[in-house]
Design a binder for these strands. Sequence first.
DNA 1: ATGCGTTATATCCCATCGTATATAGCGCTT
DNA 2: AAGCGCTATATACGATGGGATATAACGCAT
Lengths: 114, 114
Amino acid sequence: MHRPRIRLLIGAAVALGPGKVALLEVIGRTGSISAAAREMGMSYRRAWSLVDRMNADFAGPLVEKVAGGKGGGGARLTVLGEDVLARYHAIEEKAAESVKEDMEAFAPLLKEPE
Amino acid sequence: MHRPRIRLLIGAAVALGPGKVALLEVIGRTGSISAAAREMGMSYRRAWSLVDRMNADFAGPLVEKVAGGKGGGGARLTVLGEDVLARYHAIEEKAAESVKEDMEAFAPLLKEPE
DNA sequence: ATGCGTTATATCCCATCGTATATAGCGCTT
DNA sequence: AAGCGCTATATACGATGGGATATAACGCAT
């Protein structure tokens, strides 16, 4: 059974979706952009550019980056980053809950992937 | 103010978002894919391919197409198409309502586009 | 039979995106 | 000073998407 999910679009261009959120979480857990990229199977360049875009799109940086130092450096979530993550999850959970029934009615309209 | 929109995802792929929904509505209103494309400022090729993908992704066609005939032919929404549209709007409305407060708390975290 | 406007399809071109790769900069550790 | 691993950045290459254009197929109207 395929599980339809929801992506919240904010404005026209800025969309914080499951992908960026997952990246934020793995960065927070590993303390490194490159480690997160490896774990998620994406190139470092892509992970870095996603982080850069997020840092530019929000009121402040979501990820604090350190080049050089102990272990070569690293990255960690800012307070704003943690906050954004928490609020996103709250929104996602509420939306999923309120829409549960409709989604179940919607699902059978979709073609079953074999 | 940022108004949240909803995008429904099947797994990784996008099943239905604001763009396709708008296209469906204009097709339903104009009775023509090409007329809808003109009105929405997109190429006929793109409109047609979007319709084709939707028809393939759902349990059945959402748009019924007629090549040739009175007025050259046309396109109209199927019963399934109307149903999908209605359910999408219901989902969007409910989700937006349930998430209203959180979105208002989320918005100031975003950089204000000038 | 011809014309009309639509659907249907193919081809070419350009912009965008993402991977892969290479290189530089950084600061702690040794 | 040298090494390490990470951030930072540039370049090249391939894949993808979408626009523009051209052409065919279609079926009703005249």
